[in-house]
Lab assay of single mutants.
Amino acid sequence: GLEHMADEEKLPPGWEKRMSRSSGRVYYFNHITNASQWERPSG
């Protein structure tokens, strides 16, 4: 619920959580730099 939404908002600017269609794993994508990574971004 609300706790999940608050957790999402802690991601650094530009980052969003996405799911890989090929593997079904969650990864993180930065739409500003077009960077993507499996680890949760910090800072």
Rank of each mutant, 00 (worst) to 15 (best):
G1E: 13
G1Q: 11
G1P: 12
L2F: 13
L2T: 14
L2M: 14
L2P: 13
L2V: 14
L2E: 14
L2Q: 14
L2S: 14
L2A: 12
L2R: 12
E3F: 01
E3G: 12
E3W: 01
E3N: 10
E3R: 08
E3P: 13
E3I: 12
H4G: 12
H4S: 11
M5P: 10
M5L: 10
M5A: 14
A6I: 11
A6F: 12
A6P: 13
A6H: 13
A6L: 12
A6G: 11
A6Q: 14
D7Y: 05
D7N: 13
D7E: 13
D7F: 06
E8V: 09
E8L: 06
E8Y: 03
E8F: 02
E8T: 09
E9S: 08
E9R: 07
K10S: 15
K10F: 11
K10P: 15
K10H: 12
K10G: 13
K10R: 12
L11Y: 03
L11I: 04
L11N: 02
P12L: 03
P12R: 01
P12I: 01
P12Y: 02
P12E: 02
P13W: 08
P13C: 14
G14S: 03
G14M: 03
G14E: 04
G14T: 01
G14H: 08
G14I: 01
W15Q: 00
W15N: 00
E16P: 00
E16K: 03
E16S: 07
E16I: 09
K17G: 02
K17V: 09
K17W: 02
K17E: 07
K17L: 08
K17A: 11
R18V: 06
R18P: 00
R18H: 05
R18F: 04
R18W: 02
R18A: 03
R18T: 03
M19K: 10
M19D: 03
M19F: 15
M19G: 03
R21D: 10
R21T: 12
R21A: 14
R21V: 13
R21K: 14
R21H: 12
S22G: 11
S22D: 11
S22Q: 11
S22E: 10
S22C: 15
S22R: 14
S23H: 09
S23F: 08
S23T: 14
S23Y: 05
S23R: 06
G24R: 07
G24T: 03
G24Y: 03
G24W: 01
R25H: 07
R25Y: 05
R25E: 10
R25M: 08
V26M: 07
V26E: 11
V26P: 08
V26F: 11
V26K: 04
V26R: 04
V26A: 07
V26L: 07
Y27I: 05
Y27W: 05
Y27Q: 02
Y27A: 01
Y27V: 03
Y28N: 00
Y28H: 00
Y28Q: 00
Y28P: 02
F29N: 00
F29W: 08
F29E: 04
F29M: 02
N30M: 02
N30G: 00
N30L: 01
N30F: 02
H31L: 14
H31P: 09
H31W: 14
I32V: 09
I32A: 08
I32W: 06
T33W: 04
T33P: 00
T33D: 04
T33M: 04
T33E: 05
T33H: 04
N34K: 15
N34T: 06
N34R: 11
N34G: 15
N34A: 06
N34M: 10
N34V: 03
A35S: 13
A35T: 14
A35D: 09
A35L: 14
A35Y: 08
A35F: 08
A35I: 15
S36D: 03
S36R: 15
Q37F: 03
Q37E: 02
Q37S: 07
Q37L: 04
E39D: 08
E39M: 05
E39Y: 06
E39R: 04
E39G: 07
E39W: 07
E39S: 04
R40V: 08
R40Q: 07
R40W: 09
P41D: 02
P41H: 01
P41A: 02
P41C: 01
S42E: 11
S42L: 10
S42M: 10
S42Q: 15
S42W: 10
G43I: 13
G43K: 12
G43M: 14
G43S: 14
G43F: 15
